[in-house]
């Protein structure tokens, strides 16, 4: 019986993929409520309105986290999405109690197999490899499967000499996979170093929120580092820092603007301009440029 459902679900997924990425949005599963309150300014707005603005609050510009497929549909040229390693999962390597059930619930809730979607596709006609962490799935945390999918994406970019684009949104290393999660930081960073040495371009985009082991590995290693406005970006989470130093953190601490000011982000780019900026960066990194008379 379960198998039947699973087969059906897979077929549905396949159909959706063939249709392109429309419809695979973050809002698809948010229930019947028609209105949404912006956590940035408390303004009320209709869900439809929010979807039209790509989940950026029209009042205050708050960038709501969005799902990986929606993100990719905004980045890639239509019909060019080819998912990589879509069924790669890693089970429960430390036999952590309750982890399998937790994963099953997350899969059911989000329709995702794991916390990252990796793919090949085109941006304004140029072939790229892209990876997008999805904060809906266990906070986009990096376990073995996420680390492996990202490493494979990096290796694909290197082999096919494609630019690599990674959108990060993550709480860091995944606790339930313990030390093996930690090792994914070394694995992804090592793969990126190889890509770098072979002359490959890597654009890293920080989105809200990115902390912990993801900030302390691949997300911070871009040749170009972009961030969405207001994104929380840090190594330690704000709560941990407050507990450590015993005082309240200043306004704006660990926000994208703060990182830009401190020299860790090239530019902050609003969501609706990201595709344009990435296109320009791809142009700027074309090989074989010649001087025109």
């Amino acid at each position: 019986m379960n198998n039947l459902f699973r087969a059906r679900r897979e077929r549905l997924e396949q159909l959706r993929r063939q249709r392109g990425l429309e419809g695979k949005t973050g809002a698809r599963r948010t229930g019947a409520a028609l209105f949404h309150q912006c956590p940035g300014c408390q303004a009320m707005m209709s869900k439809g309105e929010l979807a039209r603005t790509h989940y950026v609050c029209p009042q205050c510009g708050f960038h709501h986290p969005i799902g990986a497929y929606l993100r990719l549909s905004m980045l890639l040229d239509p019909q060019t999405f080819q998912e990589l390693d879509s069924h790669l999962t890693a089970g429960n390597p430390l036999s952590f109690p309750g982890y399998e059930e937790k994963l099953a619930r997350q899969r059911e809730k989000t329709g995702l197999e794991e916390g990252v979607v990796t793919c090949k596709g085109k941006v304004s006609g140029r072939a790229v490899v892209a990876a997008v962490l999805d904060s809906r799935f266990l906070m986009g945390s990096m376990g073995v499967a996420v680390g492996e999918k990202i490493t494979r994406a990096i290796e694909t970019a290197r082999k096919q000499k494609c630019p690599l684009i990674i959108f990060s949104a993550s709480g860091g290393a995944r606790m339930q996979e313990g030390i093996l999660s930690l090792m994914q930081m070394a694995k992804t960073s090592a793969a990126l170093e190889r890509l770098r040495r072979s002359g490959g371009l890597y654009i890293s985009v920080f989105t809200h929120p990115t902390t912990g082991g993801v900030t302390a590995s691949f997300a911070s290693l871009g040749d170009i580092i972009l961030a969405e406005p207001g994104a929380l970006i840090g190594f330690a989470g704000p709560r941990v820092i407050e507990q450590t130093i015993g005082q309240k953190l200043p306004e704006g601490f660990q926000r994208a603007e703060y990182l830009e000011e401190h020299g860790f982000v090239d530019q902050i780019v609003p969501r609706d301009q990201l595709r344009g900026v990435i296109t320009r960066l791809l142009t700027l990194h074309e090989k074989g440029g010649k001087l025109r008379d």
């Binding site: 930081m185 911070s220 190594f235 020299g263």
Partner: peptide, 14 residues
């Protein structure tokens, strides 16, 4: 954090 703890660890790993 202000001095880039995440970047420092990431680039050391690489």
């Amino acid at each position: 954090e202000a001095e880039g703890q995440g970047e420092a660890i990431a680039s050391t790993l690489a």
